[in-house]
Nucleic acid binder design. Structure first.
Length: 518
RNA sequence: GCCGGGGUAGCUCAGUUGGUUAGAGCGUCGCACUCAUAAGGCGGAAGUCGUGGGUUCGAGCCCCACCCUCGGCACCA
């Protein structure tokens, strides 16, 4: 048993915190959480990181609007993001803020490691004083700032630049060859077509004045602040202790072929091009996979402050519970595309899949065991592994469901397909009850047959608990608890060893309906 | 504008290298059942497969044109 554990490192994007978290943030965190939980289920050593991006000028502006110090604003908002952990039952191991010392130290170390590719150049651009941002000419409307309708000024500033152009061919190769695998493929193609247009050097600093003194200093040049993206990306190694060459950095970054970034479609270029380029420059290994998810829309519209359609994940959880929120986002939203949220859709999913599906199956099975078997797991005289719910090839048996779960969580990241497969099995279990009519068997006192049927159903429910453990952890535990399997699920979750854990004679604990109908 | 996805039942989508009556889930309607959260099962209705041409013995799948929609097009999650 001294076999070395496989390692797995995954991260989410670190969020801008000039506003509180919304459901789109929740979607990404939950997706990453499920992946992390699955790899733990496989017995791997998992390090799951998330955090906040706090050096942006947007925070300075937001603080100004509220009339509070920037530090106060980021502290308060970062806390809100951290609180998603409890609300959504996230299992991340670390939460990094880019205002932390360990991050600043690492970001500056990375800058110095890239030194050979950094040079100074005068940058000239159209700058809107109101937005405090540079604009491309193509972004202007009639030569005016789209936000303020004012004419931007031509501003010159000496900045540091990074020789991205030097890495064009290398980047093209590692992406084409899936050394850095981009999922789904359409995103990979987008990145490649972007490279094919030719890569230019990028500006990686701005004047401290323009940044209002907020941000991380360029090493050796206090008049300049590090461009937020360069330092933000470095959070992925800083949290592992890159700054002080820590043990986790060696273990999870340097000597690990399983590094995954989970991000939204809007920031793919930074992750698929700039980040690997910085790492190449610094002589560090690249991430192995980048999974790009879509965005959440609300009633078909983009979530936005001005539309006032932002859905607060905390309120949603308060109203419906953690697992239903996790279930909806994972089941209803195709992970690689945009997906839509409405309360109607939410409640429909809740009722049809959770209340009438899983919840009802558990309730009816437990009641029959209560009535016909004195509430105990029945004795059987056959091999559990010959039970049709496990092996019948004509039905969508639970072994098939496991295959789909595995494929979804290690290859395609289509969580909806995994859940759909598990729920197909739930339907099979319901059908199995209907076909075998345990109530008739009980009346005819066909004890042996009845036991076999009910044992198979309990076994199926036990298996479902294992399968949904990564998606709906609380629900899985409730079921496992009723079956007196909670300890095994928590402490030794490896599913391959769990197939015969249902013990005849075990008293089934009564439980409340898992998902009361709305 | 350029490049790339899509447009298939009320809704969300599957449809393999072109081949007989186009599929699933949800919703809806009907039937029988009763262990269950008025849940579950079975059955039915429902589609001129974006439009117009073309290739072919045969096209949702191939070609052309057009319409609509979504995404990408550098320092902006």
């Amino acid at each position: 048993m001294l076999r070395k554990k496989k390692k797995f490192y995954l991260t989410t994007a670190i969020d801008y915190i000039n506003a509180p978290p919304h459901c789109g943030h929740a979607l990404e965190k939950i997706q990453a959480d499920v992946i992390a939980r699955y790899h733990r289920l496989l017995g791997e050593e998992v390090f799951f990181l998330t955090g906040t991006d706090e050096n942006s000028l947007k925070n300075v502006q937001a603080a100004k609007e509220e009339g509070i110090p920037v530090k106060k604003l980021v502290d308060r908002n970062a806390k809100r993001f951290y609180e998603l952990k409890k609300a959504l039952n996230l299992s991340f191991n670390d939460f990094i803020r880019t205002t932390e010392e360990r991050h600043i130290k690492g970001a500056q170390k990375l800058w110095l490691a890239c030194k050979k590719d950094i040079y100074k150049k005068t940058y000239r651009g159209l700058y809107c004083l109101g937005c405090e941002e540079f604009y491309q000419e193509s972004e202007l409307e009639d030569g005016l700032c789209p936000e303020h309708k004012t004419k931007p000024e031509l501003v010159e500033e000496e900045n540091h630049f990074f020789r991205l152009s030097e890495y064009q061919n290398q980047l093209k190769k590692i992406i084409e060859d899936d050394e850095v695998e981009i999922i789904p493929e359409t995103r990979k193609n987008e990145v490649l077509s972007f490279i094919n247009q030719g890569l230019e050097d990028i500006c990686i600093s701005r004047s401290a004045k323009r940044a209002h003194g907020w941000g991380i200093n360029v090493p050796g040049d206090p008049s300049q602040k590090v461009w937020v993206w360069l330092e933000a990306l470095s959070n992925y190694i800083n949290a592992l202790g890159y700054g002080e060459n820590g043990e986790n950095f060696q273990k999870f970054w340097q000597r690990n072929e399983n590094k995954l970034h989970v991000i939204g479609k809007g920031i793919i270029r930074f992750h698929a091009l700039y980040w690997p380029a910085f790492l190449l420059s610094a002589g560090l290994p690249s991430p192995n996979k980048i999974f790009v998810h879509g965005y959440l829309t609300i009633g078909g519209q983009k979530m936005s402050k001005s539309l006032g359609n932002i859905v607060d994940p905390f309120e949603l959880v308060k109203k419906y519970g953690t697992d239903p929120v996790r279930y909806f986002l994972l089941r209803e939203i195709p992970s690689t595309e945009d997906g839509d949220f409405t309360y109607d859709k939410f409640e429909q999913r809740y009722n049809s899949d959770l209340a009438k599906g899983l919840g009802n199956l558990v309730a009816r099975t437990f009641t029959m065991v209560e009535k016909y078997c004195n509430g105990r797991v029945p004795e059987i005289d056959k091999d559990p592994d010959s039970h049709p719910l496990r092996i019948d090839k004509k039905i969508h048996n639970w072994k098939k469901a496991w295959q789909d779960v595995d494929n979804s969580l290690t290859v395609t990241y289509q969580f909806n397909e995994a859940l759909s497969s598990i729920w197909k099995f739930i339907t099979e279990a319901d059908r199995y009850i209907e076909e075998n009519r345990p109530w008739d068997l009980a009346q005819k006192r066909k004890k042996k047959e009845l036991n076999w049927i009910l044992y198979g159903l309990l076994d199926a429910i036990h298996q479902i608990a294992w399968q949904i453990f990564i998606f709906l952890p609380d629900t899985a535990l409730k079921i496992a608890k009723a079956l007196e399997l909670e300890k095994i699920l928590v402490e030794n979750p490896n599913y391959k060893d769990s197939w015969t854990n249902i013990k005849p004679g075990t008293k089934i604990k009564k439980i409340e309906p898992l998902f009361p109908r709305i």
